[in-house]
Design a protein around this nucleic acid. Structure first.
Length: 477
DNA sequence: TTTTGAGTTGTTCGA
DNA sequence: GTCGAACAACTCAAA
């Protein structure tokens, strides 16, 4: 009744037991299922810092996954090395007939998986869809081509959606055939991996599926207000699940199901808006999978002709949160201090770097990639190309965020700015968005001298706007 | 094949 | 303060 005697389940971006597609497939297919996670040195060795919140998050998640597997009669083997080498070696040692894993769509991961599949032969490498609701070829235009505009993609996505696609994989009922590995596979500590602790715990962020469930439970009653609340960084609008989606400590099916059910027939716009964000996630995975060149090039190739000045002093000011524009600086300080940045602020900070400072979007993309806990290649690239107007939707290049207007609109009292730019704590809600406009007396009264305690604006927005418009026009012509 | 409607997230200007 | 139009013209997707 089993297809295989023994198989190996390889966990990667799916650090949970519940509703895990590949784990379910493995348990259904084999009399004995081994489980493994590899701390892949090919990834860890190139991280920019030895204190990385993501590594800490993964360690916590892997530890919890290991404990969870033990309660179900299994045990997680944990390795540290190159997955390309370690997985085939382990499969051979265990004598399994197949290795199961969930699909990973990034170009580097696809190359790794192709190499592993090759090295495993004749042992099979069997993979399942788990990270997304619909993969790259499941939502197509009537002409059978991939979409490149979000709205028609979303309409087709919603039309295709059926409760069937959101059904959880009932892993719990099939864990009787978990296998005990031969020998010892001790867990790795953060220090054992060569990394230093971060402020993750102090931030209240924790890895693992239990923490993800807590966040989700906390968000469910807020979902109805998501549409109104999500744009204001000072309030608790978003779900904060992005990092858990990144590492698979929560199932996309579980949360999409909740959103879809709540959205109903259009009577809950908060849930519908949140579901839309989950569809964006599928959309960008699809775009990257079909167009891997966007990793290094503009989706609209014409814009690769732009010669970005890339002024180093301006880029450094942006990275340090010292541009003189409070909302931009607060945003950058948030990512620097926490590894998280509110979505509205990601747009403002990205627009400012590209359109005001004339720095190549790829430098900003890299900065976010290095610092975001929830960094995902597909979504980060899509977001930056959107902000830079080089992306795949019909985004006119003359849409340039005004950092003061955005600040007034989305942080009206300056509460968020005050949290991350304490130099400006003495400014009132009216003037905090553009403190350089204060008179010398008013600055003294607010306890901040512009140019001494807080930088003067590094560029003039109105002038910068005209300059970038001119640049884009030249390239088009 | 041709036509038609529409395109995440904005800003500025002028009435 | 508020509102509508202009920004410029292109590409996508469906009828």
């Amino acid at each position: 009744m089993f297809r295989f005697d023994a198989v190996l389940m390889w966990f990667r971006r799916d650090l949970r037991v519940a509703d895990n597609a590949a784990l379910y497939a493995a348990l259904k297919a084999a009399r004995r299922v081994y489980c493994v996670f590899v701390y892949d040195t090919e990834i860890l060795d190139v991280l920019p810092s030895r204190a990385d919140r993501r590594v800490e998050f993964i360690v916590q998640s892997v530890d919890e996954l290991g404990r969870d597997l033990v309660t179900r009669g299994g045990q997680l083997m944990v390795l540290h090395g190159s997955a390309r080498v370690e997985i085939p070696r382990l499969a051979n040692r265990l004598g399994v007939q197949a290795v199961y894993a969930n699909h990973d769509y990034e170009p580097g991961a696809l190359a790794r998986d192709a190499a592993v599949a090759q090295a495993l032969k004749p042992c099979e490498f069997l993979t399942r869809k788990d990270q997304v609701i619909f993969e790259k070829d499941e939502i197509l235009t009537q002409g059978g081509t991939p979409f490149s505009v979000f709205t028609p993609y979303k309409n087709a996505w919603l039309k295709k959606l059926d409760p069937f696609f959101l059904k959880p994989y009932p892993v719990e009922g099939y864990t009787g055939n978990m296998a005990q590995p031969p020998g010892k596979f001790p867990a790795f500590t953060l220090a054992g991996l060569g990394f230093k602790p971060t402020n993750l715990q102090a931030l209240g962020i924790a890895g693992g599926a239990n923490s993800a469930q807590q966040l989700f439970t906390d968000f469910v009653p807020r979902m109805a207000r998501y549409r109104e609340a999500r744009d204001f960084p000072a309030i608790r609008g978003p779900s904060y699940l992005s990092v858990h989606l990144r590492f698979g400590t929560i199932s996309i099916r579980e949360i999409a199901r909740a959103a879809w059910q709540a959205a109903g027939d259009g009577d809950d716009e908060g849930a519908a808006t949140w579901l839309s964000e989950l569809i964006w996630r599928d959309f960008y995975f699809m775009i990257l999978h079909h167009h891997p060149r966007v990793v290094s090039c503009a989706f609209k190739p014409a814009y690769d002709a732009i010669r970005w000045p890339n002024d180093k002093a301006l880029f450094d000011a942006w990275c340090a949160g010292r541009t003189g524009y409070p909302i931009v600086d607060a945003a950058i300080r948030q990512i620097n201090q926490t590894g998280y940045m509110h979505n509205r602020l990601r747009m403002i900070a990205a627009s400012f770097l590209v359109k005001d400072l004339l720095v190549d979007w790829r430098l900003g993309e890299k900065y976010f990639a290095d610092h975001l806990n929830d960094f995902d290649l597909a979504a980060n690239n899509g977001g930056w190309q959107w902000a830079a107007s080089t992306g795949c939707d019909a985004q006119p290049y003359f849409r340039i965020f005004n950092p003061v207007t955005q600040s007034q609109k989305f942080d009206p009292d300056g509460a968020f700015i005050r949290r991350y730019v304490p130099e400006l704590a003495g400014c009132d809600g009216r003037t905090i968005h553009a403190p350089w406009t204060l008179s010398a007396d008013a600055q003294r009264a607010a306890g901040v001298v512009i140019g001494r305690d807080y930088p003067a604006p590094v560029v003039d927005h109105a002038a910068a706007r005209l300059r970038v418009l001119e640049m884009f026009k030249t390239v088009k012509a």
